[in-house]
Simulated scan of single mutants.
Amino acid sequence: MYTASKDRYTAMDYNRCGKSGLLLPKVSLGLWHNFGDTTVFENMKQLCFTAFDNGITHFDLANNYGPEPGSAEKNFGRILKEDLGTYRDELIISTKAGYDMWEGPYGNLGSRKYLLASLDQSLKRMGLDYVDIFYHHRMDPDTPLEETMGALASAVQSGKSLYVGLSNYDGNTLQAAADILKELHCPFIINQNRYSIFDRTVEKNGLKDMTGKLQKGLITYSPLAQGQLTDRYLNGIPEDSRIRTDGRFLKESALNSHRMDQIHKLNNLAAQRGEKLADMALGWLLQHQEVTSVLIGASKPQQILDNVKAASCAPFTEEELKLIDEISLK
Score class of each variant (00 low, 15 high):
Asp132Thr: 09
Lys96His: 12
Thr173Phe: 01
Asp142Leu: 13
Asp83His: 15
Lys124Asp: 14
Tyr169His: 11
Tyr87Cys: 10
Asp129Ala: 03
Arg138Asp: 00
Tyr106Thr: 15
Ala176Ser: 14
Asn168Thr: 12
Tyr99Pro: 00
Gln157Ala: 12
Met101Asp: 13
Gly98Lys: 02
Met101Ser: 14
Gly127Asn: 06
Ala151Thr: 01
Leu128His: 10
Met139Phe: 15
Leu128Ser: 07
Met126Arg: 02
Gly165Ala: 05
Trp102Leu: 08
Ala177Asp: 10
Thr173Val: 04
Ile197Tyr: 06
Gly150Thr: 09
Ser118Lys: 09
Ser94Ile: 05
Ile133Phe: 06
Tyr114Ile: 02
Thr86Asp: 13
Gly104Ser: 13
Met101Tyr: 15
Glu82Arg: 11
Gln121His: 14
Gln157Asn: 09
Ile93Ala: 09
Lys81Val: 05
Gly107Val: 12
Ala155Gln: 10
Tyr106Leu: 14
Leu116Asp: 10
Asp142Gln: 13
Gly110Asn: 10
Ser158Arg: 12
Thr95Arg: 12
Asp179Tyr: 11
Ala117Trp: 07
Asp129Arg: 02
Ala176Pro: 08
Lys81Pro: 06
Leu84Arg: 00
Asp120Ser: 14
Leu174Lys: 03
Ser94Gly: 00
Ala153Met: 01
Gly107Asn: 12
Asp199Phe: 13
Asp129Met: 06
His136Phe: 03
Asn191Lys: 07
Thr148Phe: 07
Thr148Lys: 11
Asn193Glu: 02
Tyr195His: 04
Gln175Ser: 14
Asn108Cys: 02
Asn191Gly: 07
Cys186Glu: 05
Asp100Ala: 14
Gly165Asn: 08
Met101Leu: 15
Leu84Thr: 05
Glu82His: 11
Asp142Phe: 14
Ser122Glu: 12
Gly150Glu: 06
Asp179Glu: 15
Leu119Tyr: 07
Arg112Ile: 00
Arg88Lys: 06
Ala177Cys: 05
Pro105Lys: 13
Glu146Asp: 10
Asp140Leu: 00
Tyr87Thr: 13
Met149Asp: 08
Leu152His: 09
Lys124Met: 01
Ser167Arg: 11
Ile197Thr: 03
Leu84Val: 06
His136Gln: 15
Ile79Gly: 00
Asp170Gln: 02
His136Asn: 15
Arg112His: 14
Pro105Trp: 08
